[in-house]
Simulated assay, not measured.
Amino acid sequence: MRFNPDKTAFGRHETFALRFGWLTKGTQALMGGDPVFEADDATVQLGVGKNMVSSIRYWLQAARIIVRQGDAWELTKTGTYIFDDDGFDPYLEDEATIWLIHWLIASNPEMATTWWWFFNRFHKPEFTSAELAAALQDFAQAQVKGRHAGSTLKTDAAVLLRMYVRSSVATGTPVEEALDSPMSILGLISDLQGSKTFESRPARRDSLPAPILGFAILELLDALGERQIPIEDVMRGRTGLPAIGAVFRLTEAALLAKIERLVHDLPDLFALRETAGIHQLYVFGRSAPAEILAAHYADTFEEAAA
């Protein structure tokens, strides 16, 4: 979660943006017990090409769904909550899960450096693909240790756009290529019709559930080793750490409204107070970030059953 210039990753996706079904397909194969990603028949088990096998494994790591433990891959706690046999949403049917995966990727500078940089540190509301690639190269040259090929960074910028912008598909495009990434439904980046310009602006984000924001806040507080945080730090972040308001592209008013909803719905966990003229969010107890997901999914299950 904390940016380390010595630990970064570019171009690990094999030029493929995250696709619908990949996280589910990868976790289900993994839970089968075999070392699927290293298996000789991995392409058969996953039903994709060799480079796509590597890409699925990468996106599972970038989204913090799996982690290497010794010689084996295991689901993380969050991965288990979502994708286990009894998981909350293994087929990504709830948009809240897409928001969660977005946070998990955008707060992972070690495995998804370009995504971390764009959503936490790139604040230009309108830009072209060339401007995005140039800004990424400036960032890499100034703040990342080691050398990174310009072509790799340009590809990263292109994959990021492909992943978050809804595509305009031409007739004759293969079906799999025509499927947008699940991230595209969030509306965090869009192309301006009639131009080669993209935009990514703060907005209300009504589809972002407050508990997903709460999950991000708890993770940030765990990284800080603190149980309180100024609202300003939630919005803009601290040096080297995610800026939650920026990651979700929220306006300040929208961020505060969602925090107030969290405090209202989970008063035993969150409280808003003003100390020395600074609005701060307090967290009580030692609730694990993944546990707050139940606050959203339990309500969702009840609504579906009603």
Rank of each mutant, 00 (worst) to 15 (best):
G277C: 05
L293R: 02
G214D: 12
T300L: 12
A294Y: 12
I185R: 13
A276D: 15
L218M: 10
L46K: 03
K196G: 15
M1W: 05
M31A: 10
M163Q: 15
P289F: 06
E219C: 13
D191R: 12
T24P: 01
S190R: 15
Q228S: 15
D191N: 12
E126F: 06
E38P: 00
V144M: 05
L104W: 04
A276V: 07
V67N: 09
R121L: 15
S54M: 04
Q280F: 00
W115D: 03
W115F: 09
A305E: 13
L186G: 01
I185L: 07
M52W: 08
E38N: 11
G146I: 02
I292C: 07
L100Y: 09
Q45D: 07
I65A: 04
A298L: 09
S107T: 13
D222E: 14
W117F: 14
V175W: 14
R121H: 15
F20C: 02
V283Y: 07
W59M: 04
P5V: 12
Q193G: 10
A142P: 03
S107P: 02
I185P: 00
R204M: 10
G237W: 04
A42E: 04
E95Q: 11
G32P: 00
G194C: 09
L208H: 06
I82A: 06
I189R: 01
D89M: 06
R64H: 09
E177Q: 12
A203F: 01
V53H: 04
T27C: 11
W99V: 07
A130T: 14
L241P: 13
F248N: 08
T128S: 15
A243H: 06
Q228T: 14
K154L: 02
F248Q: 08
R2W: 05
A29V: 05
G245K: 10
W103C: 09
A243E: 05
G49P: 09
K50P: 00
L208S: 05
L220D: 05
S168T: 13
R12V: 03
A210Q: 10
L208M: 07
V36R: 01
V169H: 06
A142T: 13
H264G: 03
I98L: 10
I185K: 11
Y282Q: 14
V165M: 08
R68T: 13
D156V: 08
